[in-house]
């Protein structure tokens, strides 16, 4: 059992545990914090897979920006906990069963259709260095220029949309 594998197992145990914590916490604030931890472990996975740029983005965008926004809203709305409701009984049981089936399917897939996903080669050492980042930049601004520009428009639209949705009408509701 190599050191890589040990590291991977520990990290994945943390990731699954934090995900389950997010899922099972009664309090939404705890859920959000669990999720931040989960995102951080995933960022480490990215580093292990030789994607430092994505790892940094993960930390800044997800763990930083998005989750802070979540916490803001939770606290703003005071929606940490909800009163239990009797609607949709059996939903939880059904979801559990389906989840188990889905995991079973995936395991089956990985065990018996293994040929599709072979062992990955150790990534080039260069990938974690500056030239790799340069390559990402070049790719973004050459072959992916159009999607990149459209993304910027998308962000602008989302920004405008969010502002419009939350804006207070001066004269109240009509």
């Amino acid at each position: 059992m190599s050191i890589d594998l040990i590291l991977f197992l520990i990290l994945s145990a943390v990731a699954v545990a934090t995900a389950l914590g997010m899922l099972l916490s009664k309090n939404a604030v705890y859920s959000a914090l669990f999720l931040v931890l989960n995102f951080a472990t995933i960022a480490v996975f990215y580093l292990l897979l030789g994607a430092p740029f994505i790892a940094i983005s993960q930390v800044t965008v997800y763990a930083g920006a998005i989750m802070v926004l979540f916490l803001f809203v939770i606290m703003l709305l005071g929606a940490e906990t909800l009163a239990p409701s009797k609607v949709l009984r059996g939903q939880g049981l059904a979801a559990f069963i389906l989840a188990v089936v889905l995991v079973a399917e995936t395991v089956y897939l990985l065990l018996f259709r293994h040929a599709a996903v072979g062992a990955i080669a150790r990534p080039d050492a260069a990938l974690n260095e500056l030239p790799a980042l340069q390559k990402i930049g070049e790719a973004l601004f050459t072959s992916y220029l159009l999607p990149f520009e459209i993304t910027s428009i998308l962000l602008l639209v989302a920004m405008v949309g969010a502002i419009v949705l939350t804006k207070q009408e001066k004269g109240g509701q009509k």
Partner: peptide
């Protein structure tokens, strides 16, 4: 009208289709 109920249907569909493919 319950969004979670619809989501359950989607999830069920995902599981069934994946099962079929397998």
């Amino acid at each position: 009208g319950f969004v979670r109920s619809y989501a359950l249907s989607v999830f069920l569909g995902v599981v069934i289709i994946l099962g079929y493919l397998l």
